[in-house]
Design a protein around this nucleic acid. Structure first.
Length: 418
RNA sequence: GUGGGCGUAGCUCAAUUGGCAGAGCACUGGACUGUGGCUCCAGUGGUUGUGGGUUCAAUCCCCAUCGCCCACCCCA
């Protein structure tokens, strides 16, 4: 710990080879999402604070105590985004995108900020990858979005995931359910854990996924949202389940699942990983939010979205193979040979071949040792003999084959064959 | 914000009752004048997270502080 500066608490550098994994995740997700008709949108990471107050709502700690909020030099209260959806919806309304034909589909990725106590799978600056679809209320869109999320995860080779599903109703039926829930817990309020007593006031739905054992027993006979949904919500959910079954997408109905953000309506879903993620085991989650666009001043527009945590995805994709090395390593002996090596390397690099050089007057042996250490595919040796004869010695470090070849031959042989 | 655990070399970890800070791996070089991997040898690398205190003496005990980890809360 002699470094003069260290990264802030809860933020982290992503180093190679981890960065390769991140790129793979983003590329794969981008590929799948464009097949589903999504286009990238790049919103700013900073917004006026009120945007998040109005979207996420005050029943969540995100807004009340986790935002990076400050006053800028113009006296405005601004915040680093704690999640992506609010910005996308703002952009959608601000640029009058509802005027374009529905559905409008966007994906995004980038850092989010929440001032939380770090733990496994949770940091203050973390990356999310997400998508939003505007303009269609049909449950087929819910099924499509969920299928797309599962397709991304599947394409990445992730196994042991479970998709959980619920409906939390709309503005007609959810308030009624909240009240029924309160009535149910009122007589046993004193038996609930302190956190749940607070939830009772703030957001009684949250009591349903409390981890305290005693609270679990108490809520055994609590009313279920699925029994309280209005007919429209009930139909919507049934239809979604039908689509998923037709698509063969495995899913689990979890009547106790509650999402944290206030703006969700009807469909909510969560994809959980199996092992290795600790307590923060949701790799992706999302839901429908049919009211948010109009709350932001746009026309009444149904919408649905999801977000996935990059760090959690990367954590699940264990780094398997050794770091790939250069296709060719050029060892040289003497100043003249070094010049020749540099010229050769530059021509190959111009053609896209990855080449490393054995710089610096080291013995041939140490240069070759280094070529081996960095996992080079082949090595070419340039010394005085080779300069005289014009024939370079080469050796394949993988299979041990070797030979001699002229410059043009070498160029041809290593010009980005693979 | 709350609770618990942990800070010794780049990494993983030792260090007896409080008594000269070590090993393996990694890195660099050599043994082997221009042919890697295996082996052997050597070398580089540390104010023991930081600041105080107790003591003849602190990696070890005490206090504070910072950082990391895990869990709660919350959530991707």
């Amino acid at each position: 710990m002699k470094s003069r500066f260290t990264a802030l608490k809860g933020v982290a550098d992503v180093l190679p080879p981890e960065t390769g994994l991140w790129r793979k995740i983003l590329n794969t997700a981008g590929l799948v999402m464009s097949a589903y008709g999504y286009e990238e949108i790049i919103p700013p990471v900073i917004e006026q604070t009120e945007l998040f107050l109005r979207s996420i709502g005050d029943s969540s700690d995100i807004v009340s105590k986790e935002m990076y909020t400050f006053t800028d030099k113009g006296g405005r209260s601004v915040s680093l985004r704690p999640e992506g959806t609010a910005s996308i919806v703002r952009a959608y309304v601000e640029h009058n995108l509802p005027a374009r034909p529905a559905p409008q589909k966007f994906f995004y990725s980038g850092p989010m900020f929440r001032y939380e106590r770090p733990q496994k799978g949770r940091q203050r600056q973390f990356y999310q990858l997400g998508a939003e679809c505007f303009g269609i209320a049909d449950p087929a869109v819910d099924a499509e979005m969920i299928t797309m999320v599962m397709a991304i995860l599947g394409r990445l080779g992730l196994k042991g995931l479970s998709l959980e599903l619920n409906s939390i109703g709309c503005k007609q039926c959810r308030p009624a359910f909240r009240e029924r829930l309160r009535e149910f817990f009122t007589p046993r309020l004193s038996e609930l854990c302190p956190d749940c007593q607070r939830r009772y006031e703030q957001n009684p739905l949250r009591i349903l996924d409390c981890k305290v054992e005693r609270c679990g027993e108490i809520r055994k006979d609590a009313p279920l949202i699925s029994e309280t949904l209005c007919q429209d919500c009930r139909d919507h959910f049934a239809s979604l389940v039908g689509f998923l079954e037709a698509l063969g997408t495995p899913h689990v109905f979890n009547p106790h699942m509650v999402r944290g953000l206030d703006y969700y309506t009807r469909t909510v879903f969560e994809v959980k990983g199996d092992a290795g993620l600790g307590a923060q085991n949701a790799v992706a989650a999302g839901g429908r939010y049919d009211l948010l666009v109009s709350e932001f001043g746009g026309p009444e527009t149904p919408a649905i979205g999801f977000a996935a945590g990059m760090e959690r995805l990367a954590g699940l994709l264990r780094q398997e193979a050794a770091a790939p090395g250069p296709a060719l390593f050029i060892a040289s002996l003497g100043a003249e040979a070094a010049t020749e090596a540099l010229k050769l390397a530059t021509r190959l690099r111009d053609g896209g071949t990855r080449v490393e050089l054995g710089w610096g007057g080291f013995s041939l042996k140490s240069q070759l040792r280094r070529a081996d250490k960095i996992n080079a595919g082949s090595v070419v040796i340039i010394g005085e003999d080779e300069l005289k004869s014009g024939k370079f010695k080469w050796k394949n470090l993988k299979d041990g084959s070797s030979g001699e070849a002229g410059r043009e031959e070498i160029l041809k042989q290593f010009s980005r064959a693979e």
